[in-house]
Design a protein around this nucleic acid. Sequence first.
DNA 1: GCCATCAAGATTGCGAACAATCTGGGAAGA
DNA 2: TCTTCCCAGATTGTTCGCAATCTTGATGGC
Lengths: 240, 240
Amino acid sequence: MTSSIRRPATTADSAYEQLRSLIHRGELQPNERLVEADLAERLQVSRAVVRTALVRLGQDGVVVLTPHRGARVRMVTESEAVEIVQARAVLEALTARQAAVHATAREIAGLRRTLARMRRKLDENDLLGYSEGNAALHAGIIAASRHETAARLIAGLRGQMVRFQFRTILVPGRPPESLAEHTAIVEAIGARDADAAESTMRHHLRGVEHTLSRTTGAAARRRSRENQDQDQAEHQAETA
Amino acid sequence: MTSSIRRPATTADSAYEQLRSLIHRGELQPNERLVEADLAERLQVSRAVVRTALVRLGQDGVVVLTPHRGARVRMVTESEAVEIVQARAVLEALTARQAAVHATAREIAGLRRTLARMRRKLDENDLLGYSEGNAALHAGIIAASRHETAARLIAGLRGQMVRFQFRTILVPGRPPESLAEHTAIVEAIGARDADAAESTMRHHLRGVEHTLSRTTGAAARRRSRENQDQDQAEHQAETA
DNA sequence: GCCATCAAGATTGCGAACAATCTGGGAAGA
DNA sequence: TCTTCCCAGATTGTTCGCAATCTTGATGGC
């Protein structure tokens, strides 16, 4: 899953990862000013490595760099969030297609196991567990696709979501639908049906997009106004 | 078309753009070692700005950064080139879909004009002119899509092609087919038929992918062995 | 003659200091 | 009282230098 462009993990890379993580789980909030000296203090590294980390994050759209005015966590607007989901949709559909071609029998068995776990979690009404299974399933499909390029792009897009990283799974009536869609995807991959894998995945993610557009207007706005701190756990899960 | 993440154009950005350009047109060859001091001399900037430019280029996959061993122009393998074309295909299909929704009448008229110009160039057997028109058409569709995210990703993918930036248009028998496909795309957008726009664009780019896989084995390998310098003009054009 | 070891040169990574620029608040004037 | 101007503090951008690491070529042992 790792980028394959950059080989080992040095201290500079560690700082980059840490910053990315801090932003991703909302500890550094959107539009928050990122002062290099403060971050250097916080991560116990020099200002230079913070600086290059910020450059990297700026390059993949997680922060905004304004000359002489520093870096801010990028605020993703509602419409941008929709764009990101759309782009992810077509790319993940591509990985589903490739997975149908390249997945090993072992990988397909793994996907089926993950699916069974999701079904169980859903029966137990464990939505958080279901959400985790969902993330695992998508990750498994991406891995099975052997498509490094798509994997890299999707990872980049995921990193940009941040604020909108809520679980559409919490929307009433969505879970059973979601499970059915995931089942169809895995079945298509298992049947080596590339076209079906792609189209079922696209159908699935289009559902996510619509759910997002519907819920984002009211809910997301409310969330970003008030209590921005206590709901960090929300950001861990993956969009379903 | 510009990234919208980073606002003004400073000297540091200029260096980044210049390096990108040098790599893109093959003046810095794949696998060539990029020594910071040399580049600083060449671009007449400090080593630090070269450094951050390299970090940025590394982040978007144009160069490979190995700790303590410096940067190299990334060598795109044949299979990676196919991956890139595939990813571009689904993303450009998305832009075609969005263009069918968001394009203004003026933009659609512009696309039709570009298409007419391509037809004329083809009649005159001006393949280079046709290729330019092709690039303009795709750019126009992307612009009309109003999809910043897809535009950014596509631009990034284009930058990674470098060596494989040859014109599939030169393959015998391809041009008339290409023109027909482009016509169908523009018609679908003009008719506001999102589904048709998307599927025709995907069909078109799948054709490009197949052409690439067929020609790349022999031709590309030959090209990269010998004369790597005199064919810079080849790299200007866009994959059709 | 071939391979391991090692040293010198080259190059990158990092830290600190300095210069350039922005921000915010207060003073002067209308 | 409001507006404008300007200065001090804060923050970023850049330069410089040095330590850490890699590479290359030579030397010596087998």
